[in-house]
Simulated scan of single mutants.
Amino acid sequence: MKIRFEERKDLKEKPTGNLGFGKYQTDYMFVMDYEEGQGWHDARIVPYGPIEFDPASMVLHYAQETFEGMKAYKAKDGRILLFRPEMNARRFINSNKRLSMPIIEEDDFVQAVEEIVRVEKDWIPTGEGESLYIRPYMFATEKAIGVHPSHSYKFIIICSPVGAYYPEGVNPVKIYVEDEFVRATVGGTGFTKCGGNYAGSLAAQVKAEALGYTQVLWLDGVERKYVEEVGSMNVMFEINDTIITAPTEGTVLPGVTRDSILHILRDWGYKVEERHLAIDDLMKAGHDGTLQEAWGTGTAAVISPIGELYYKGDVVQINDFRTGALTQKIYDTLTGIQWGDLEDTYGWTHEVK
């Protein structure tokens, strides 16, 4: 894929201090257009700035939009590393297929990510736990008021230097279990990364925050019985020395971090079960002490220990609201691989040269 470059005259001043998450954007962005009959064309890296499109653009009316979340890391030896970018490319393909949007081939997706990271390499922060967050996304641009798949699209990649996703950092968070609203059902879009999934989750997030909880744990959409995932993360529980996480059967996002951790845990000899776990059984395990540790997994937060669950007025604390030894070991191992501090025996890191 040929990518042209448009240089900007004045570069931004890079932020210092607490970066937060998603507050700052880099100097450039990758852009590529799609027209039915022509395909993808005009791949370019241009100065970051506003996007102009028609008020009748179909994304504004029928929500054809997908995205991904990735990071670039700067190793102590100066190498720039991506983490399993091919998995993000494949998930992006599956999301776009589900929303009747054109796909971007895996090699082209990875090339586009590599190129914008190469251009913005000086934006990769080097503080503890810091990285360059990468947000590839696609949306419908056809000017039309009518329900049908758009005939034109725009694919963009923007980047943001970030610190910890949660203000708590790698410290336990409090989770509210949602029993009124539904995130996903079989046959829907739960396995995709599309904006609609997140828009539909905000009402529950507001409820959770009003009660002093950081995130929402969703139950299945049919029986409201089985644990699925947290709003921005997959979730895992250690009960009686067994790691349990929801299966990816169409309602749970197939997370890159999730898959990586399951590989690591199995290699460490842990019993891992990808199965349905009833919320009543989870709360019971919390009360009788067999729920040993719990954590969320995702690109943004990497690992987020769970210290408390709230369900219908019932509250359980996990591991005395402390980060568990296994949770910490997983975090240290995975981030060690991602930042290049530990040997990558899996071949997951992808160097940008």
Rank of each mutant, 00 (worst) to 15 (best):
I337S: 08
V110N: 10
T16C: 06
W339T: 15
G39V: 08
N234D: 12
P149C: 08
D288K: 09
I330K: 02
P172G: 09
A72G: 07
E65G: 02
Y311V: 04
D54I: 02
T257L: 11
G49F: 09
I303S: 02
S232P: 07
I175G: 02
I124M: 03
K193H: 06
E178M: 09
K121Q: 15
K271D: 14
E128T: 12
I244K: 03
V173K: 00
E114L: 10
I157V: 08
T242L: 04
Y137I: 08
K9V: 04
D259Y: 06
M236H: 00
R224M: 12
N171A: 15
E105W: 10
V252H: 09
E273L: 14
G163D: 00
E351C: 03
F139N: 05
R258L: 07
R98N: 06
T327P: 10
E351F: 08
S57L: 12
T242K: 14
L60G: 07
T141M: 14
Y346D: 02
A325E: 15
E308G: 05
G250M: 00
R266W: 07
V216H: 06
R91I: 05
S232G: 15
G296K: 10
F21A: 15
L202K: 02
T327Q: 05
D314I: 14
E7Q: 13
V227D: 13
R91S: 01
A204T: 12
T26W: 04
G127H: 05
E293V: 10
E105M: 12
R8N: 14
W40P: 04
Y310A: 02
E7L: 13
P125L: 09
Y73Q: 04
R224H: 15
V182A: 12
I45R: 06
P149Q: 09
I337N: 03
A203G: 07
K271M: 10
